[in-house]
Amino acid sequence: MEENSKQLAHAFLQGDIHGSWMIIQEHVNAGMNSYYIYEQLLTKAMQYIGTLWEENDITVADEHIATGVCDFVLSRYAFPKVQSHQEHRRAMFFCLEGEEHYLGLKMVHSLFKEEGWNCRYLGPNLPLEYALYTIQNFKPDVVGMSLSLSTQLPQLKIYLDAFDQLTEQPEILIGSRLGSTINTNFLSMYKNIQFVNSLQDVRLWFEDDALQISQL
Rank of each mutant, 00 (worst) to 15 (best):
L74V: 10
A162G: 01
W21H: 10
D209R: 11
S146A: 13
L149H: 14
C119Y: 05
S198I: 04
L216Q: 11
F163E: 03
Q83W: 05
L96A: 05
M1T: 12
G98C: 01
Q7R: 06
L149K: 12
P127F: 08
L52R: 10
E39K: 00
I23M: 08
Y48K: 07
I172K: 11
T43Q: 15
N183W: 02
Y77P: 03
T184K: 06
Y38K: 01
I24Q: 10
V142H: 03
C119P: 02
L211V: 03
I65S: 09
G68R: 01
N197G: 13
K157F: 08
H85N: 08
T43C: 10
T134Y: 09
Q215L: 12
L128Y: 01
Y77E: 08
N125G: 06
D201S: 03
K191A: 14
E99N: 12
N29F: 04
L199A: 06
Y102E: 02
Y102I: 10
P170H: 12
L211M: 13
E99P: 04
M1N: 10
I172N: 04
N118F: 15
A210M: 14
H88M: 02
S180Q: 15
N137A: 07
L178N: 09
I37S: 10
L52E: 13
I135T: 00
E207Q: 14
L149N: 05
R203F: 09
K81N: 14
Q47R: 12
L103T: 08
N197F: 04
G98A: 08
P154A: 08
E171L: 12
Y130C: 07
W117R: 01
I158R: 12
L126K: 01
M107R: 06
F94A: 12
V82Y: 14
P127Q: 04
V69D: 02
A9E: 03
N125Q: 05
I172D: 05
D164Y: 11
N192Q: 15
N29S: 13
V196M: 14
T151I: 12
Y130Q: 15
G98P: 10
L132N: 03
N197P: 02
L204R: 11
T151W: 07
E54V: 11
K44C: 09
E129T: 14
L105D: 01
H88L: 14
K113Q: 14
S150M: 02
Q14P: 03
V69E: 02
L103F: 00
D164N: 14
Y130S: 11
M1I: 07
A66L: 01
P140Q: 09
L147D: 06
M22L: 13
C70D: 04
K113Y: 02
H101K: 02
